[in-house]
Design a protein around this nucleic acid. Structure first.
Length: 452
DNA sequence: GCATGATCATGC
DNA sequence: GCATGATCATGC
């Protein structure tokens, strides 16, 4: 096998398929499997295809123009989910900014990928991993239109001397994720002296979940918001969406209910109304684009004076798990990996002087880099406090603790989030504490949604 | 008046 | 039964 060239996509795919079911321990001829991350793909490339890992810029099979990607998935109670983002090439800020999508390093390397999927099972030895499915993946047209715009968003930030402001949540499917030993892995950018974090092109984990489900497990697609692909050539997905909602800006909740014949008084009323405005059968959150791009709709209620009524909560955390995560650092944490790639779709309702709720506007938002770092500091403070032991004090209003308060940070804080004060979880240092979660400060949200 | 602790309500 | 999104309520 040594020195064999795979000259066509078909030849790569055919050979790739033959690996299905063979434990990687039997495939590995070099003992590389024992080495760290990325070993699965490298072992297959080297020991199965007989290729030496090549230069960064070329696809793994240069003659066939195919990049090999081993991608883990997890079985959850809600079905198949990608374990992580699919990381592609590191972005060379100095080179990429004056290219076009077609001449970009990303497209050169990743326009065709041999996706080899395997199930990630915690604790399983790497030698026992088997590749379950192998497909030659090319981006479907509707995804490619969005990916081209994603790429352009990244490029234009570099071209504006703002490579240091790039963040994963800027884009929908193709994102610039951090890649490096730690936060101090930085590189030069062409139009500014400010060093920028090293980043790589990646396909968001939410996008990979969809790819796995669709192309490997053969599931149905979700309902699309933009049904006509050609529209995406003219305008971005976000512009199309905002445009379709604009006619309803300024209407009160009651007017909208009447308009759409909605009777409900439920808390998810706004969700129902939005679906009606867009002519959806199901929920906005379950549409193809929102699911793949990891866009989270959030209703924000604003007082007549512009202040945001409530802070925004995130899922409850487990104190013991959080303590464990502390060993791996902020960028490996659950919170980081939720907050960094997520785009939020803010649906803004403002109370008018008659106390009626008015649908003001919508805004796509993701957390800016600096503020994400600030959340990282709050996270670290939380981890450290939990690790050394939370101090709990009885007060007339319940139990108070020394986790980060709103007054400590412009951006985020920690607060209870359970059924009631008896809804508790164990602490790693012993004893129990009311379930808690991270919150984005309402004052911070107000600042972020301000129209500039 | 607001930060902070507490709790409700719905849907999966 | 619980996670999640949403909101309440009171003491400082």
């Amino acid at each position: 096998m040594e020195g064999t060239k795979y000259l066509t996509e078909e030849a790569v795919l055919e050979r790739g398929r033959e690996i299905k079911g063979i434990p990687l321990g039997l495939v590995d001829k070099t003992g590389r499997l024992a080495t760290g991350k990325g070993a699965v793909g490298t072992v297959i490339e080297e020991s199965w295809f007989g290729y030496k890992p090549n230069s960064e810029a070329e696809p793994d099979f240069p003659e066939a123009g195919v990049e090999l990607k081993a991608t883990p998935y997890i079985h959850t109670e809600h079905g198949i989910r990608a374990k992580e983002r699919l990381v592609c090439n590191i972005i060379d800020y100095m080179q990429e900014y004056d290219k076009t999508f077609d001449t970009s390093a990303f497209w050169h390397k990743c326009k065709a990928m041999l996706l080899m999927s395997y199930e990630y099972i915690k604790g399983r030895a790497k030698t026992d991993i088997t590749i379950d499915e192998v497909v030659l993946f090319k981006f479907p047209e509707e995804d490619l239109e969005i990916i081209k715009r994603d790429w352009e968003i990244i490029r234009s930030k570099i071209a504006a001397g703002k490579a240091h402001e790039i963040s994963e949540g800027d884009t929908m499917y193709l994102a610039a994720c951090t890649k490096g030993a730690n936060a101090s892995s930085v590189r030069k950018q062409p139009l500014s002296d400010i060093p920028a974090k090293q980043r790589a092109y990646s396909l968001k984990s939410s996008y990979m979940t969809s790819v796995l489900n669709r192309f490997i497990f053969g599931s149905e697609q979700n309902e699309h918001i933009v049904k006509d692909v050609h529209k995406l050539k003219e305008k971005s997905f976000e512009d199309i969406l905002v445009e379709r909602l604009t006619p309803y800006f300024g209407k009160t909740q009651e007017e909208l209910k009447k308009l759409f014949g909605v009777e409900s008084t439920a808390k998810n009323l706004n969700e129902l109304l939005l679906a009606k405005m867009l002519g959806l059968k199901g929920k906005l959150a379950y549409t193809d684009e929102f699911v793949k791009a990891n866009i989270v709709p959030k209703t924000i209620n604003v007082n007549p004076n512009g202040s945001v009524i409530e802070s925004m909560s995130f899922p409850t955390f487990d104190f013991i798990e959080l303590d464990n995560e502390g060993r791996y650092g902020w960028e490996q944490s659950t919170l980081y990996n939720y907050l960094a790639p997520t785009r939020f779709f803010f649906i803004i309702f403002q109370k008018n002087d008659n106390g009626e709720s008015v649908f003001e506007r919508v805004k796509f938002w993701n957390i800016p880099n600096d503020d994400l770092d600030e959340v990282g500091r709050v996270w670290k403070r939380t981890v450290d406090t939990i690790h050394k032991g939370v101090t709990i004090t009885k007060t007339p209003r319940g139990y108070s603790n020394d986790l980060p308060k709103k007054s400590e940070s412009r951006v985020a804080h920690v607060r209870p989030h359970g059924k009631d004060s008896r809804d508790t979880l164990p602490l790693p240092t012993g004893g129990q504490l009311t379930k808690q979660c991270f919150w984005l400060n309402n004052t911070y949200i107000a600042e972020q949604i301000k129209e500039r």
